[in-house]
Design a protein around this nucleic acid. Structure first.
Length: 153
DNA sequence: GCCAACGTTGGC
DNA sequence: GCCAACGTTGGC
């Protein structure tokens, strides 16, 4: 079982949105970066645990843990001209290179673990999230880092 | 295949 | 809104 961190802008899709969704399950649509896609397509397995991170907001923070409940399948928003995630080039070529996974709420943290708090924890200094310029929206998290994050929650 | 220009991410 | 970091694009 692997751990991951996935970023979402809460204005677009928040932890609360996931909690309110049917079966507390949501499709992680809109990933348009090949490295992030490859993680989802090649490595995400049912049962993997996902730290849900709020980015580009007043208080960037990990909100809780979700669990992968469906492995990679085509992301239809890439082929949908009315979607914000429409990929015109791929749509015109008629093949969809983009995938998504479904994740389900596992456990909301008793409080958000803020980015500032994470920066203050020496054991987490190597966390990919803290690397300058790290923009990847899907990142692997080591078991050691995952345990430390869960302990912090 | 190089690389400059451009666009996006995301913290501050 | 600023700006650094990085990915993507496109001319050559």
């Amino acid at each position: 079982m692997k751990y991951w961190l996935m970023k979402s802008e809460p204005d677009t899709y928040s932890w609360d949105d996931l909690e309110r969704a049917p079966q507390q399950t949501g499709s992680w649509e809109g990933v348009r970066n090949y490295q992030a896609r490859n993680f989802m397509r090649d490595e995400f397995k049912i049962g993997d645990q996902v730290f849900f991170y709020h980015s580009s907001c007043a208080e960037p923070a990990i909100m809780g843990l979700a669990e992968v409940v469906r492995e990679a399948y085509p992301d239809p928003t890439a082929m949908d001209p009315s979607s914000d995630y429409y990929d015109e080039k791929s749509a015109k070529k008629g093949n969809n290179p983009w995938v998504m996974v479904d994740v389900k709420v596992k456990k909301r943290f008793t409080r958000p673990i803020t980015l500032a708090e994470i920066r203050g924890i020496p054991d987490l200094s190597e966390l990919a999230l803290l690397r300058p310029g790290q923009r990847l929206s899907v990142q692997p998290v080591s078991h050691e880092h995952a345990k430390r994050l869960i302990k912090q929650s």
